[in-house]
Design a protein around this nucleic acid. Structure first.
Lengths: 151, 151
DNA sequence: ATGTAAAATTAGAATCATTCCAATTCTAAT
DNA sequence: ATTAGAATTGGAATGATTCTAATTTTACAT
């Protein structure tokens, strides 16, 4: 099923670019590349086992341990992000644009939502002085359109 | 818009009031009361086992299963909140005022931070139409003053 | 008071996600 | 080609949480 012609999102070259831009310090092994590509072409914030299943479709020999390992390296290289919306499995996403996650509490779906304008989060909360902010995680929980319609 | 903040150890009576106000549907058993009191007098966002240890100091016979059970009931009654800052243990907090969590990635400390003014989160992100928002979780990650000073 | 049904509590087993480990294979630079 | 350092692997180990089935407590009707 994986044909080069249907390759969506970033090509390996795109990945290399991205890595260069980010000064990412990861060796680009075939497995890591595949894990990244699966993630880059997914918009549903898959869990580690979701990624495992998808990568396995192309590379049946890969192990779950390797997927975890790849996800960890890609995360610490800044190429992907780990998302924690609720207890249980971590989810992963390759969307590095500033965004927040909408989480439907009924069907579990996760949707990226983008800031309305030039939103500067830092100025909205009073933090103790001396605090250094590195990142923010914003999760909006509720009911998606489809689930809201059903009830 | 929030009321004057009296953030001290709520008395059992305070808890009853709170329950009444919230229309909370939990039977107020001694264990649940103790779990709630431990949480209400903690500002460090303890984990379930932290709560277990603290409650056990007063009620050595309590079991971890009961603590989990109490935390779940108190959470679904809206008396406390479950917090997920990173993967691993859930944390709990009894501060129901609107606030966000600052998480120090160095020492793990969690600090409540309050919105600067009349902050209306809903208007900052573009959500698909039909979406119904029930709550937001905002986590700010970084380095606390003390840890920043050390490095 | 007493009996009863429902809810709470318990210890321990089971589950689930993740991490660790030790052995093997691959890679990149001598 | 050699070799050290990574990457990968399967499986074991861990840690947090949930489940289960038995027991106790509670609220309420009698």
């Amino acid at each position: 099923m994986p044909t080069a012609s249907t390759r969506s999102t970033p090509s390996p070259t795109g990945l290399q670019c991205r890595m260069a831009l980010l000064g990412a310090d990861v060796r680009l092994t075939p497995h890591r590349r595949e894990v990244f590509e699966v993630l880059a072409s997914s918009t549903d914030h898959p869990t580690a086992t979701d990624v495992f299943d998808r990568v396995k479709a192309r590379t049946p020999s890969i192990s779950l341990a390797t997927v975890y390992n790849c996800l960890e390296h890609l995360t610490s290289a800044g190429l992907i992000k780990q998302v924690h919306l609720e207890r249980g499995q971590s989810r992963y996403c390759a969307n590095l644009h500033e965004h927040v996650h909408f989480h439907c509490e009924t069907c579990g779906k996760v949707i990226d939502a983008h800031p309305a304008a030039d939103f500067d989060p830092a100025k909205f909360w009073v933090l103790p002085k001396g605090t250094k902010v590195t990142r923010m995680d914003i999760a909006i929980h509720g009911t998606c359109d489809a689930c809201a319609a059903k009830s």
